[in-house]
């Protein structure tokens, strides 16, 4: 019993070490030449632009539901200023980055794992190496860079749409005055709220890309292996996002 716990623990630390080493190597390749500009451009589009619909949609509904819930749930605080504050703080600090992170993990993390996994099992990664091209540099580093830079942009959009969602519900359903709702929103908002959200976004983007690349890069055994790699990538990224979210929140707003 103890032995098997020990073995499991050992294997966990081994995997964690392997994962961290992969992450560090990949990050070091971002800053060392040569750089592959054309691939990075395509990735910005794939990861950033094409994630806008899902991220925007989730943000809009999050903002809307926040306004509704806080109105019906906290009937003693249901003034414009409280609802506006709850919506804007929840969105910028937590829901914007976390929802966007989970959505992008599902969309982009899975796609990265599937693409690299397929390249692995069809020997394309071996072929890269035989053509004197470092797969870490050509495949992994650009994806890390693109996801880390695109996530904050996506979250800015998510923040705006999320707050708008709350605003629309507030004005149309709860009978708030549009001007004073917006005024309360901007009075509540502080730089740190948005900034902490963007730090989260960049961190989540990095985690999503690392999980996708790692599981894809080491996938084995044909189509089934690629499927498993995709699942692991999304699950691992989602868990790491929630853990990192807690850690960053504690760092920014903790006691």
């Amino acid at each position: 019993m103890l032995q098997s716990i020990g073995r499991a623990l050992l294997s966990f630390f081994q995997k964690a070490g392997h994962f961290s080493l992969f992450a560090l190597t990949a990050i070091s390749h971002i800053v060392r030449p040569p750089f592959y500009a054309p691939t990075v451009g395509r990735l910005f589009l794939d990861i950033g632009f094409y994630s806008l619909p899902v991220v925007g949609l989730t943000a809009a509904f999050s903002g809307m539901v926040l306004a509704l819930q806080s109105y019906s749930g906290f009937s003693s605080f249901n003034s414009e200023s409280t609802i506006a504050a709850i919506v804007v703080l929840s969105i910028t600090r937590e829901l914007g980055p976390v929802m966007a992170g989970l959505m992008v993990a599902g969309r982009v993390g899975a796609a990265i794992a599937a693409e690299l996994g397929t390249m692995r099992v069809t020997e394309q990664i071996d072929a890269l190496q035989m053509l004197s091209t470092h797969p870490m540099k050509y495949l992994v580093a650009p994806r890390l860079l693109a996801a880390t830079l695109m996530m904050p942009l996506l979250v800015i959009v998510a923040d705006i749409i999320g707050v708008m969602g709350g605003f629309v519900i507030g004005v149309s359903q709860l009978g708030f005055n549009a001007g004073s709702y917006l005024k309360s929103t901007f009075e509540t908002l502080e730089f740190m709220d948005v900034f902490s959200g963007l730090v989260k976004a960049a961190t989540f983007g990095l985690l999503i890309a690392i999980c996708g690349c790692y599981h894809g890069y080491y996938s084995r055994g044909g189509a089934q292996g690629v499927g498993a790699a995709t699942t692991y990538a999304v699950v691992a990224a989602s868990i790491l996002i929630l853990v990192a979210n807690f850690v960053i929140t504690a760092l920014f707003f903790g006691v």
Binding site: T122, E123, D126, A127, L128, M130
Partner: peptide, 15 residues
């Protein structure tokens, strides 16, 4: 290794 090359079993072309 730069002087080596390989034709892979499934050709391994970059799709």
């Amino acid at each position: 290794l730069r002087r080596f090359s390989m034709l892979f079993q499934g050709a391994a072309l970059f799709d």
